[in-house]
Structure formats: C-alpha cells, structure tokens
C-alpha cells in the first residue's frame, strides 16, 4: 500500500454544488456558508483559507458527513454524499484529521493506527501492524508503537494521527487545521512529512487552515474564502514544482503567490476583525 496507485484509479473527485449551511434557521439564522461551489479533481491537494467563522470547518464537517447542508449537494465520484434533507453518512472513504486531535488516549499507538483497517475487516491484525510500522517509520516514528498517546509530543501525535487516517485508505483526506497548535519549527517539519505522505499516496486532500504560507507551501490550489457567510473570494493555482522542500518558501514565485493571496484575503480578515472575531483564523 505504500507504493500508491496512479491517480485515475484512486477516485476521490469531489464536487461541491452550491452548498449552503444555515444554523438555527428559525432563531438566530446564522448563515455559515452560502452558495458554495467547488470542484476538486482526484488527487488534488486543495487548501482552503479564510477568516475565522467563514465556514471552513463547517464545510469540512459536511464533506465528512458529520453535518448536513441546508441546501445544495456534495458529490464524490458520481455518488451523492450529502444533500439537504439527506441522512448523515460518514464513511471510511473520507478520513478526518481533527484540529484538537482525536487519538484514543486509552489505547496504544499501534491499536490507534491499526483499528481502522482491522475493524473494517480489510486487513488482518498482523498485516495492519506491518503496514502501520512501515508508515510510522516513514515519518520518523519508530519504536513508539506500544506507547500511549499521552506519552507523545504534540508533533508526534499529529503524525500518528495522519498515519492512522491514511492506513484507513480513504479516497479523501480531510485536515482541519491540524498543525494549528504546533510551534513554527515543528510545523515546518510536519509540512514536509505531510508532503512526503501525499507524494506517496496521492490521495485527494482537503486542507483547512488560516495560515497562508502553509496553504501555498502544501497545496496545488488555494481557495480563499470571504468572511461569513463563506463564499469563494479567489482561487489561486499554486504552480510550484513537486517535490517541495522548505527552501521553496524563499523563492520568487512563492513570494508572488503569497502577495496574491494576501491581497485577496486582507479585506476579509479586516471585515471579520471589525465584526468582532477574535483572530484571523
């Protein structure tokens, strides 16, 4: 499974069709997302940036099947995943790496990363363990299999969590500001680690963040969102060559892309700030 298959076979093409989400329609009527449409081809790394409260996390939760849209529909490979009035349908084909982290603290690292394929009945425990060890080793985590999550550092936890999500072999990986709580140095190591895993598996990635540089460094495409209600402000195609490493951040093209993105997002950040949001997030 570490070889990764060519893009066409993996599936995971996402189509978000004029999706809207209104919280508490009868009462406060908070419009989190409005007429949001986006096509993500199979295997693309798509980053979504926007001010806090713009509905990024809501969108991700709808893609995952944890919340349902109030209008529009979400389609993956011709299959309708979510739509207004449809039942919530979370599935192993879309794995989420959560902002706060969601490893089971009462289980060892090995159990945490192998539980998916084993519970699905897709792999035998031995096979799953072998795969898990191989992928943990890839991201520099050898010999921690029998430790509990509480014994690991924040950076290690995030890596374990990404490995867990990938071992479940989803078609899409959904990441909700996974590196938010990390220090700058750990964060840049994590970025390279994530890119290595991405180059290896070429899953479709939907990455939510408030960090522009992070988005440009990682993604094929950056979608800048407006302040609430969330709509698309600008799409930026990131044409930096892969594989990328940290040096690319100081390249001229990176600077241009960043300026473009900042211009697009600055007004929105200001709007959100004036609307009383705590931070640009």
């Amino acid at each position: 499974m570490l070889q990764g298959s060519p893009r066409s076979e993996t599936g995971g093409a996402l189509s978000i069709r004029s999706v809207g989400k209104v919280y508490d329609p009868g009462g406060d009527h908070v419009v989190a997302l409005e007429q949001f449409s986006l096509e993500i081809p199979s295997g693309q790394f798509c980053a979504v940036v926007g001010p806090s409260g713009c509905g990024k996390t809501t969108l991700l939760n709808m893609l995952a099947g944890f919340e349902s849209p109030t209008s529009g529909e979400i389609v993956m490979d011709d299959e309708i995943l979510a739509g207004a009035g449809k039942r919530l349908a979370p599935g192993a084909d879309r794995m989420v790496v959560f902002q706060q982290g969601a490893l089971f603290p009462w289980k060892t690292v090995l159990w945490n990363v192998t539980c998916g394929p084993v519970l699905q009945g897709r792999l035998s425990p031995d096979r799953a363990e072998a795969d898990a060890r191989a992928m943990l080793a890839r991201v520099g985590l050898e010999g921690i299999e029998h430790q509990y999550p509480g014994e690991l550092s924040a950076g290690m936890l995030r890596r374990v969590e990404i490995v867990r999500a990938l071992l479940i072999e989803p078609k899409i990986l959904l990441l909700d500001e996974p590196f938010r709580a990390l220090d700058a140095l750990t964060k840049s190591v994590m970025h390279e680690c994530l890119l290595e895993l991405y180059d290896l598996t070429r899953k479709t990635v939907f990455f939510v963040t408030h960090d522009l540089e992070e988005a440009i460094f990682l993604a094929d495409r950056v979608v800048a969102m407006t302040a609430r209600p969330g709509r698309i402000k600008k799409m930026i195609k990131v044409d930096l060559p892969r594989p990328r490493d940290y040096r690319i951040v100081s390249s001229e093209r990176f600077g241009q892309l960043k300026r473009e993105a900042v211009d697009a997002i600055y007004d929105e950040a200001k709007k959100a700030f004036e609307a009383g949001e705590r931070e640009f997030a």
Partner: peptide
C-alpha cells in the same frame, strides 16, 4: 469528545 464518536461512525461502528 464528539470527534471520537464521529470517527467511530466514519468507520461504520
């Protein structure tokens, strides 16, 4: 944690 419940549901538990 709601994330734990979500994750379990994603895995079809």
């Amino acid at each position: 944690k709601k994330e734990h419940l979500w994750l379990a549901r994603s895995l079809g538990a």
